[in-house]
Each structure stands twice: as C-alpha cells, then as structure tokens.
C-alpha cells in the first residue's frame, strides 16, 4: 500500500448479533488510535459516511443464510485486499447453524405467520464456504485484544500472534483451577481453542466452546469422560451443538451421539 495513504478499513455484516463488530467499538482505550492509523471507509454500525472501495482490510461478521448474502459476499471479496472473517458466525456459521439439522420450512412456520415473505437458505454457512478468506478470527464473541493484534499484524504484513492451543493451556497459564478435575463439571476446554481469557472456568463453569475446536482436537476422548461424569448421549450432543456446531470436529462428534 502506498506510504502516503492511510489503509482503508471496511466492516461488513451478514447474519449475526453485531457483537463481534461491537468489539471494535468496545476498544474504548484504543478506538481513537485505530481511527488515526486507518481510514474507516465503511462501518455502518459506526458511521453514515461511506468511502468507495477497494479496501485494504475487510472485517466480515456473520454467516451466509440468504441467497442475497451469497451475492453480497462475492462483491465484498472482489473489493478487498485482505478479507478477515470475525467470530463464530463468520468462521463456522454460528448458533443459527443449528438450522442445518432441521427442516427450514418447519422453522419458518414456527416463527412467522406469512412464510411467503421469508427468503432464506436451508443452511447457515461460513464465509470461507463461499469466498477465499485470508484469516479467520474465532470466538463468540471475538476477543478484542486478538482483533487489535490482527489489525496491527495485517497493517504491518506480519503473521498475527493468535494461539491455536487449548483452553486447558490458557487455564494453566492463568493459574485457574480445573473445574472438570476439581468439581466434576463437564468442560469443552480440552478440545476448544484458547483466546477468550478462560472466562468460564474463572466463574466456576465448564467451557462451552465459544472459540471452536483447537488444533488437532480429540473430541471422542472428551465425550467418553463426559459420559463418565453422567451426561446422556443427548446432553453430550447438545454440548457440541452450540455456537461452533458448524466446525467439523464439533459437528461430527455431535452426530456420533445422535
């Protein structure tokens, strides 16, 4: 990118809760500095000003759930130098990917009086299922420090420092006592990627998998342990079928307990 020009940042929303793009506005101490180092060219949640593409960095939140979104993500890709998907919806389809296990007509009938007004796909899928993605940032929601690191790394053309090890490592590093060992609570930590700041075990709660599978996970072994702790097959299945149910490791293990 030319040295005399600030890189252009765009933030795009697909099917989502807005929580991940809110993470950028939640960088209270860093927001004005970020706004100094990049040109916020398109960020509807924050500004009515729109600057035309192409964009140096596009942050994409949300999953693909409508025919219109398929067309829109292709246009975003075509205008973006680096396309980064942020959050569980954008990286694996999010909580709304629970619809992938259901008949979509039944879903529409359950919620809406006039199904004919609704235009939706039968699935909720990741951004990378439709276009090439340069980096995927995990989390439901994403961690704002990881987001700042990622923006910084991308601006400086270096690899972002985002660990792919498990929550267990994060708990050990933080000195958090294991809730599964000490209290027998079911916990997805052994197979879930670190990054949230081990928020659940610090609250005496088992991890529920917001950051998706870690590198080389072994969910079958974890399921065996969860059953020893007294969970039924249905409870084990639902443990995997949450915000990251679209991730293959979670999806397959959930199905194994169908």
């Amino acid at each position: 990118m030319a040295k005399n020009r600030k890189p252009k940042l765009a933030v795009w929303k697909f099917s989502s809760c807005d929580g991940c793009q809110l993470s950028l506005l939640d960088c209270e101490d860093e927001l004005l500095a970020v706004a100094d180092s990049v040109e916020i060219a398109y960020f509807l949640e924050a500004s009515r000003a729109e600057i035309a593409g192409p964009y140096d960095i596009s942050l994409v939140e949300g999953s693909i759930t409508t025919p219109h979104e398929i067309e829109r993500i292709k246009k975003v890709r075509a205008q973006s130098r680096a396309l980064i998907s942020i959050g569980a919806c954008a990286t694996v389809g999010g909580i709304q990917a629970l619809k992938n296990y259901r008949n979509v007509d039944d879903l529409i009938m359950t919620v809406y009086a006039h199904p004919e007004y609704i235009d939706t796909l039968t699935t909720s899928t990741a951004i990378a299922d439709h276009v090439t993605v340069d980096f995927e940032l995990r989390g439901c929601p994403i961690n704002k420090e990881q987001l700042l690191e990622l923006i910084n790394a991308t601006l400086n053309a270096r690899k972002p420092n985002v660990s792919q090890h498990s929550q267990c490592i994060e708990c050990k590093l933080a000195g958090t006592v294991c809730v599964m060992v000490s209290q027998g609570k079911p916990c997805l930590g052994p197979i879930t990627q670190a990054g949230c700041g081990n928020v659940c075990p610090r609250c005496d709660r088992g991890c529920y998998g917001c950051f998706g599978p870690k590198e080389t996970p072994n969910p079958a072994a974890l399921s065996t342990r969860m059953k020893e702790l007294g969970l039924s097959d249905r409870e084990v299945k639902h443990f995997y079928r949450l915000f990251n149910t679209g991730a293959p490791a979670f999806h397959d293990e959930g199905n194994a307990h169908e």
Binding site: F14, S15, T65, T66, E69, I95, Q96, L98, K99, R102, D106, L107, I108, T110, V111, Y112, I118, T120, S124, Y208, E235, H238, L242
Partner: peptide, 22 residues
C-alpha cells in the same frame, strides 16, 4: 431486512438452562 435466524424454533428440544446462553 436483517436475515431471519429462527431462534424460537432452534430452542425447541434444548434443556431449559441453555436458553439464556442461546
């Protein structure tokens, strides 16, 4: 024109304690 996400339907069959998180 926010795409529908069908929360009420997706909650069916889940245990009561999942409702706050979902």
């Amino acid at each position: 024109y926010e795409p529908p996400r069908f929360f009420e339907a997706l909650l069916q069959g889940r245990i009561y304690s999942d409702a706050p998180d979902i």
